[in-house]
């Protein structure tokens, strides 16, 4: 899976450079998020601008990251959801769980 991980100040930005976040590749995102929170990172943004397809496993990897963050008083925010991806968050009601922002900058400023 192609993930671009950048650290700017206290924020770690993960850009998912994939068209699909599904059962085939989402385990890698789940592990990356776990690794970052294990290292003590407290502010993480996952940007989904390139993702036009997400399935339940993709959603599950983000939920896993969210729970990992919550357990450590850290925060995970999402940015740049395409309409089809956003509709899957709404269908599963996860839009009520995550802090979702239109752009990366908005997500970072919200910490």
């Amino acid at each position: 899976m192609n993930l671009k991980v950048e650290e700017t100040g206290k924020v770690v930005l993960i850009v998912v450079k994939e068209e699909r976040l599904d059962a085939h590749n989402s385990e890698e995102l789940k592990k990356e998020l776990a690794r970052l929170f294990d290292e003590g990172k407290t502010r993480v943004v996952v940007d989904l601008k390139d993702v036009r397809f997400i399935d339940s496993s993709g959603l599950g990897s983000l939920v896993s990251g969210f729970k990992n963050a919550s357990a450590r008083q850290a925060e995970l925010k999402l940015s740049s959801l395409q309409s089809q991806v956003k509709s899957m968050f709404e269908l599963t009601r996860l839009h009520r769980v995550f802090d979702i922002y239109t752009t990366i900058d908005e997500a970072i400023e919200a910490f």
Binding site: D55, S56, S57, L59, G60, S61, V63, S64, F66, K67, M88, L91, T92, R93, L94, R96, V97
Partner: peptide, 14 residues
């Protein structure tokens, strides 16, 4: 009854 904070179990619901 969907549990929003479970990692798994959304597939058949979807």
């Amino acid at each position: 009854t969907i549990n929003e904070l479970e990692d798994h179990g959304r597939g058949l619901y979807i």
